[in-house]
Design a protein around this nucleic acid. Structure first.
Lengths: 235, 235
DNA sequence: CTATCGCTTAAGGACGCGTTAAGGGCCCGC
DNA sequence: GCGGGCCCTTAACGCGTCCTTAAGCGATAG
């Protein structure tokens, strides 16, 4: 899960980013509008937290352009209490939620999780596929009744695959959503993580939850098991 | 599906091409206008992605000449944000859509898919013929309710035949739309792929979805509803 | 009947992926 | 501050899949 934080107050930004990283997000950050615009449109972001009171291109500009470009990831805006009226414009520009500064860190986390949940169309913060269960709020993973210990990156890979269960996810897509910045990992990290995941999720090698599609990527089987696509919709 | 990418920024071009190849396209690429002009007019391109800010013959020139030559494959233009006004000229010259740099890779892919879909006159990204179903977005193939695993090239052949169901497709046409560059395969690759396709799509040999027209090529039977846009391109 | 074209099969080789092990960084406890 | 352990990362190697080619056979048209 890759988050973008655009906030010019360095202290506040650090605070937010540290917390998000602790919670398992890959975080891109900037305090500058122009750079923020670039990240917002160029990087494969899953959620953005944008301060409205920016120098350069304002937060509103960024939101508007992102939406105009057809990107639909959730955007949460931050606004100073003194200018809380701005939130209206922000929401009109295409933001999904807002938080008024100052705020409790927990509050922000909760809103972010809610937005992500909503954007996926999941009512519950729990992902299931076969006998694999992922609790995204507590970042716990179960296989059947058995609790499984995953490392940070193992979890990120699994969560992303579970969120896109049934779809073919390329290794570069995984890399992009799991690492920050342009961190081009020209190695086989993903293969290694997938292997560890497989051996932890399915030590016997009987259920094969993650299949490989040579040259294309990986696919985590949805419980329905390769159903016929009942027509595509909702990007 | 054969794509042409004309973009002088080498990094960006590589990024685009890598992604397209991963998504199953045969990709011709160049950063030079003159060469781009040649490819655009001589190769059997299915879709072109052209940067407007080129050295030599500009992107506009290429588009204009391509259209003047009577080729009607979809063209998507790339334009820097600072010069977004150029898009108007581009569209007037005959381009079909535009993306402003910087952009998110997913965004470009989505636009390309949309253009291809539109150019074929298909509302849905799903091709059907008899009991064969091809989901072009996920590159999945079903025969009846059964999911069929195809290799990369098997899929390319099938997709092309399905897109032109009912038409007689020569082996050289298949070769040209499936491979990049001038890669003249003077062998019987196509015959081999067709055989593998036949045995996977129709193991019993009863339905005969792909028929051979000796000396002319192959034809995938289209049953019933299946409209084709009036198409006069693709040498 | 023969020449040409297509079908079938098998084998070679290239390449992607799996697998393993080892190095190094970071954090935590002592 | 120091040591140890966990985990990320990389690299090497082996294996399997898939692409490609070629050769032999069958079919078809002239």
């Amino acid at each position: 899960m890759r988050a973008l934080v655009i906030e010019d107050d360095v202290d506040l930004r650090e605070q937010i980013c540290t917390r998000l990283r602790q919670e398992g997000y890959a975080v891109d950050e900037t305090g500058e509008g122009e750079e923020g615009m670039f990240y917002a449109k160029e990087y494969p972001i899953d959620i953005a937290i944008i301060d409205l009171g920016l120098p350069g291109p304002t937060g509103l500009d960024i939101i508007a352009e992102v939406r105009e470009a057809g990107l639909d990831y959730p955007i949460l805006i931050l606004t100073a209490r003194s200018r809380w009226q701005d939130k209206v414009e922000g929401l009109e520009a295409g933001a999904d939620d807002y938080v008024v500064k100052p705020f409790q860190p927990e509050e922000l986390s909760a809103r972010i999780q809610a937005l992500l949940r909503r954007s996926r169309g999941w009512a519950q913060p729990r992902l299931e596929s076969g006998d694999i269960i992922v609790d995204t709020t507590r970042q716990e993973v179960f296989v059947g009744d058995q609790s499984i210990d995953l490392t940070a990156y193992e979890y990120r890979v699994l969560e992303y695959l579970m969120l896109h269960a049934g779809e073919v996810i390329s290794k570069t897509a995984l890399t992009e959503h799991i690492y920050e910045e342009n961190a081009e990992r020209d190695s086989n990290v993903i293969e290694v993580f997938v292997r560890r995941l497989r051996s932890k999720l399915d030590p016997d090698g009987t259920r094969k939850p993650i299949e490989t599609l040579r040259g294309r990527g990986y696919r985590l089987s949805r419980d329905g098991r390769n159903r016929r696509p009942a027509d595509a919709s909702s990007s």
